[in-house]
């Protein structure tokens, strides 16, 4: 009993210690957000903790508009991207993982190829397409590709998860007369909840943090996402507003953290559905 307690305590201790190392940088960021600007660079540790909220006040109104505007914009983009990825990637994944059709391997290979080319060489032709559609300065160039399953990462992720689900389950449903759509919607989707939640979380975070495409497509300050607004605060050729940058970085971190906190609970709950099989 005592050795067990000791073991548990050690385990917690190790987890906590590593956890501290993981979070130190974030703590430093929090502390920096309330420091005067020169102190950010001259004070190495976490102490003394500043108490200057001016960075938040200044940061909130930087780039001309209240920061809430950028938070809303980023949320809209992320929401569209999540819906897009969940629907389109799971459909494609079902086809790739479960259905037999000519060209399956070729298509799968092409799909993987599409994520192997750096964005920098495809952004210009892509910009031309969206510009001709009149979509520059709208959220469409950031959402529509997700609706069309261009994010092969998630298709592949879901394929792997579906392949981990015993085929006997859909086979049984087929014998009961279920069509492909019903198998997809009523058997597989519920069973791949961990994958869907993972997709939701990642899509949210990655869209939130994405910079390059948002920089290219969102030019009107009223359309700025948080990452574009944040980056406009740091300029290598003139004075950068590091204090406000840190303050607003903290602010923009809150939504992603909340999404992760809530989301990870559902990943864990996946066990309730698959555990009993």
């Amino acid at each position: 009993m005592t050795t067990d307690a000791l073991k548990t305590a050690t385990k917690h201790l190790v987890v906590i210690l590593i956890g501290l190392a993981m979070t130190y940088p974030l703590a430093w960021m929090l502390v920096s957000a309330v420091r005067d600007e020169p102190d950010i660079f001259t004070t190495p540790g976490l102490w003394p903790v500043g108490d200057d909220l001016a960075n938040f006040v200044e940061g909130w109104d930087s780039a001309g508009l209240p920061f809430s505007r950028y938070l809303v914009n980023s949320s809209l983009i992320a929401l569209g991207a999540i819906v897009g990825n969940l629907v389109s990637c799971s459909m494609a994944a079902y086809a790739f993982a479960r259905l037999r059709f000519r060209g399956r391997r070729v298509f799968f290979g092409i799909m993987l190829l599409t994520i192997m080319l750096p964005i920098h060489v495809v952004i210009v032709p892509q910009y031309v397409i969206f510009s001709q559609l009149g979509w520059v300065n709208t959220f469409w160039p950031l959402i529509v590709p997700k609706l069309l399953a261009t994010d092969a990462f998630f298709v592949f992720l879901m394929v792997q998860f579906i392949r981990g689900i015993p085929r006997e389950l859909d086979e049984a449903a087929r014998i009961d007369g279920a069509g492909f759509f019903r198998i997809y919607a009523q058997i597989l989707l519920p069973l791949m909840r961990p994958a869907l939640v993972t997709t939701t979380i990642f899509t949210f975070i990655w869209t939130w943090n994405d910079f390059f495409t948002q920089l290219i497509y969102l030019t009107d300050p009223a359309m700025f996402s948080t990452s574009v607004a944040l980056r406009s605060l740091v300029d290598s050729t003139s004075a950068s507003s590091w204090g406000p940058l840190f303050a607003m970085s903290v602010v923009s971190l809150v939504p992603v953290f909340v999404v992760f906190l809530v989301g990870q609970k559902y990943i864990v709950q996946g066990i309730a559905t698959t555990g009993g099989k």
Partner: peptide
């Protein structure tokens, strides 16, 4: 059925991904 499920992905490939690539 497979091609139906792949419609969004195929559309994305043709309209968005393949051209620029």
């Amino acid at each position: 059925a497979a091609y139906l499920f792949l419609v969004p992905w195929l559309a994305g490939l043709v309209l968005i991904t393949a051209g620029p690539m």
